[in-house]
């Protein structure tokens, strides 16, 4: 049973590698249209839904605009956010601090 579990995991690893490989081609699941400025409403929703997956929600007024940029990119890595979600969250935080 234990061996089977690891076989399943290794199959998953291979499948996921293919998915990530495809994403390099920017084909994947990209229904989002690039909005380089970010969207306040989408950002507020992403912020509320995702921050609490791990920690208490931080007050937008805690940091300056530039600090929210680095913090949001850090959280993009940690939470697995897309680039568009990150830009939306930055727009929301910079407009709310």
């Amino acid at each position: 049973m234990k061996t089977n579990l690891f076989k399943v995991y290794k199959t998953g690893l291979a499948s996921l590698t293919v998915i990530v490989g495809l994403s390099f081609l920017n084909t994947g699941f990209a229904e989002e249209k690039a909005d380089t400025k970010g969207d306040f409403a989408r950002g507020a929703k992403t912020w509320v839904e995702n921050c609490v997956r791990c920690h208490n929600v931080r007050d937008p007024k805690e940091l300056r605009d530039d600090q929210w940029i680095t913090t949001s990119f850090h959280m993009r890595i940690r939470a697995g956010l897309t680039g568009q979600q990150t830009r939306d969250v930055i727009k929301f935080l910079q407009s709310s601090n």
Partner: peptide, 15 residues
């Protein structure tokens, strides 16, 4: 990284 699905669900990965 991560992907946002049309259903608003998302998945994230790390390899």
């Amino acid at each position: 990284g991560g992907y946002l699905m049309q259903s608003n669900n998302s998945f994230n990965y790390a390899l």
